[in-house]
Design a protein around this nucleic acid. Structure first.
Length: 680
DNA sequence: ATATGCATAAACATTA
DNA sequence: CTAATGTTTATGCATA
């Protein structure tokens, strides 16, 4: 019971909150419940990391990455949507808050669109493009900022030297030396400290992030103002500059957070002050809001821009450069305060550096992941883990070949993602079957999809403690169909589950019970007495029979998008959509032009486009979808479902198109999955 | 508002 | 008897 209640809360949470905080809470993991429900539940299982203890890192990181990418994607969507329909409307508010916040800040708010949702809406190429853009920008911004900071520092030093001229050289020298030494020490300390923080940062950040850090962040201002605009790109309706001010938080999530963490009462002191905190902490972080300055005229002083002093926390207005210099020498001379500020600034820079490094790494990893294919000859390129034999399906799928139009040609980089092999489902393989977009509801229903999806993300599920978006029934079926003789003992099924999904390596009692329950409950699973016991087989016909009619989510979603695009609505529908589809980020290569809303439509049209996934080739994997009419029940062959199972004829079963038999109506569903429309 | 699909939990029954 | 298997029933959610 306890468990039950837990899961309930979890489930309800998303809906209740209008989808906003789905990611946050997350209780499930721990106990036996561990589950968040498959189809329905939403995918926040991912948060498993949060699941308390242990192994959060991989999942978490992954999650972060996804979040970031998604965030961008979301913005993109909003733009589009807004562009499509009502431009201005309610957007403004949201934009101010989470929506447009760049990267990490956004991450902090679990809100709205979830990964799954995004996936449904955006085509892989789109997402990739966005991703790329995002990364590029981020890097650029960071670098720029970093440069600037360095300049500032340098300048400061220089200035002081000049100022010091009049003074006796020795004094100056000493001072200078002391200063530098201090800086050095600081650096070292910072390094360590930062590293530590960094390590914990991600972890601590995730929870609670929603509000806390977010608020303080803006002041950290470590950021380049234009980011927002950039993000917005083309379509952004009317976004006043204010936004930019608000979202300054670049991605220093970690940074900011850390900073705030030690700056005791963070949010409190707004801009002003530069009083260093006792411990020499980043007060400045909070004070810096000069973000806007980007363009300093060549001739001018790096610390002087837009008629004001850019010294952290200063902002004194100066008519001209001369006056500024004067101001600089008087107000920001080499004294304790300035030194402290400088230190802080250094910290900022340091953090940014680290952040940059991190982001770079991430970028590399992402690029590597996304581009692997091109660079590598092999089809299924799953960079990380070479998969042993296990799945026959793995090869079937992915033909690779899809390169990204957008030019992200980046070096594959070994990149070692810190993370591990996890990879967001869908992300990689995307293309396979020619184009099928489709990310249909993950849940089983469409068996076919499952195999392809599995094939594609099989690595992911294998390593990530993420609940697969398929129903037990579909998984069981998949397991059975994957075997040569299409039959498995219960135990073998269990093994398949644990082998294929990291998720099923825990809470065994729960899912095993579910498996048994499903086997017994669904008519499509037939138990056959075998020599050495009983084995389970699949009655494909039965299985197909129970396929639900249409999919869901997406259409609605799309509709919303097109029409009102009210964020809320949109969000809601997404939520729904996503629940179904869970993970797979991008998938089909379908379209890439981000611009056309139209393209979005079809795509999300969800399920429709189920790709052709399982190539008929050997029929091993799943329903070889031939033409609509035929593919009916492959394996099935057995007209008499009952226990006639032995009919599970080894070889030919599947492929054999059974002319008559198939029930017309049901098959139709499958049709939907056919590549036909595809869309884009 | 109702029906359906699914996940879970759990009580039992059967079998090895 | 115990553990693994199977069956069933019940509950709750989400969705159509």
């Amino acid at each position: 019971m306890m468990v039950e209640s837990a899961s309930e809360t979890i489930r309800s949470a998303p809906s209740g909150q209008n989808g906003v905080g789905s990611l946050s809470g997350q209780t499930d993991g721990s106990s036996g419940g561990a589950t968040g429900t498959t189809a329905s539940g939403t995918g926040r299982d991912m948060t498993t990391g949060a699941d308390s203890n242990g192994e959060m890192s991989p999942a978490e990181l992954l999650h972060f990455q996804q979040q970031q990418a998604l965030q961008v994607a979301r913005q993109f969507l909003l733009q589009q949507a807004s562009g499509l329909s009502s431009p201005g409307n309610n957007d403004s508010k949201q934009s101010a808050s989470a929506v447009q916040v760049p990267v990490s800040v956004a991450m902090m708010s679990p809100q709205m669109l979830t990964p799954q949702q995004m996936q449904q809406i955006l085509s892989p190429p789109q997402l990739q493009a966005l991703l790329q853009q995002q990364q590029a920008l981020m890097l650029q911004q960071l670098q720029e900022y970093y440069k600037k900071q360095q300049e500032q520092l340098h300048l400061q030093l220089l200035t002081q030297q000049q100022a010091g001229k009049p003074q006796p050289k020795e004094a100056l020298g000493n001072k200078q030396l002391a200063f530098q030494q201090q800086l050095l020490q600081m650096q070292q300390l910072q390094q360590q400290h930062l590293l530590n923080l960094q390590r914990q940062g991600l972890v601590s950040l995730q929870p609670n992030q929603a509000s806390g850090p977010l608020q303080t962040l803006p002041q950290a201002a470590v950021c380049p103002t234009d980011l927002p605009q950039l993000w917005k790109g083309e379509g952004a309706p009317g976004q006043p500059a204010e936004d930019s001010v608000k979202q300054e938080g670049l991605d220093l999530t970690g940074t900011a957070a850390t900073a705030t963490s030690f700056a005791a009462p963070p949010k409190v002191s707004p801009p002003l002050s530069h009083h260093t905190l006792p411990n020499g902490q980043p007060t400045v972080l909070t004070s810096r809001r000069d973000s806007s300055s980007h363009e300093e005229t060549p001739g001018s002083h790096p610390l002087y821009g837009h008629g004001e002093c850019k010294w952290p926390g200063c902002e004194t207005l100066c008519e001209d450069l001369g006056q500024f210099i004067k101001h600089l020498n008087t107000e920001h001379a080499l004294d304790d305060r300035s030194t402290a500020q400088c230190r802080v600034q250094m910290q900022v820079v340091q953090q940014l550096e680290i952040q940059l490094a991190k982001e770079s790494e991430r970028l590399q990893a992402m690029m590597a992941h996304l581009h692997m294919r091109p660079s590598e000859p092999k089809p299924f390129s799953q960079p990380l883990n070479p998969v042993p034999g296990s799945s026959s399906f793995s090869k079937v799928t992915v033909s690779a070949a899809d390169s990204f139009p957008d030019g992200l040609v980046h070096p594959p980089t070994s990149a070692a993602a810190p993370v591990t092999p996890l990879r967001p489902p869908g992300l990689g393989s995307a293309s396979l079957h020619g184009g099928g977009p489709a990310r249909r509801r993950s849940s089983d229903k469409f068996c076919s999809p499952i195999s392809s999806e599995l094939a594609q993300n099989h690595e992911f599920y294998k390593n990530a403690d993420v609940r697969p978006p398929f129903t037990y029934a579909s998984l069981i079926r998949q397991a059975i169909l994957e075997t040569p003789d299409r039959q498995l003992t219960l135990n073998e099924i269990y093994n398949w589950f644990t082998r294929m999904f990291a998720y099923f390596r825990r809470n065994t009692a729960t899912w095993k019970n579910a498996v048994r329950h499903n086997l017994s409950l669904h008519k499509c699973f037939v138990r056959v007495e075998n020599v050495k016991g009983a084995v389970w087989t699949v009655d494909e016909q039965e299985y197909q029979k129970r396929r639900p009619p249409k999919m869901t989510g997406s259409p609605t979603l799309v509709k919303n998008m097109i029409s009102g695009l009210s964020y809320g609505a949109l969000n809601a529908s997404y939520q729904a959509a996503l629940a179904e589809s869970s993970f797979p980020l991008l998938n089909s290569p379908g379209m890439l032009n981000p611009g056309s809303a139209s393209s979005l439509l079809p795509l999300s049209h969800d399920d429709v486009g189920a790709p052709v996934e399982p190539l008929p080739s050997n029929g091993s994997s799943s329903p070889p979808r031939l033409s609509p009419p035929q593919y009916s029940h492959q394996v099935h062959v057995k007209e008499e479902p009952a226990e006639a199972e032995e009919d599970r004829q080894p070889g030919p079963p599947l492929g054999a198109p059974n002319p008559s038999a198939s029930g017309p109506p049901e098959d139709r569903d499958l049709e939907e999955e056919l590549p036909g429309e595809e869309l884009s």
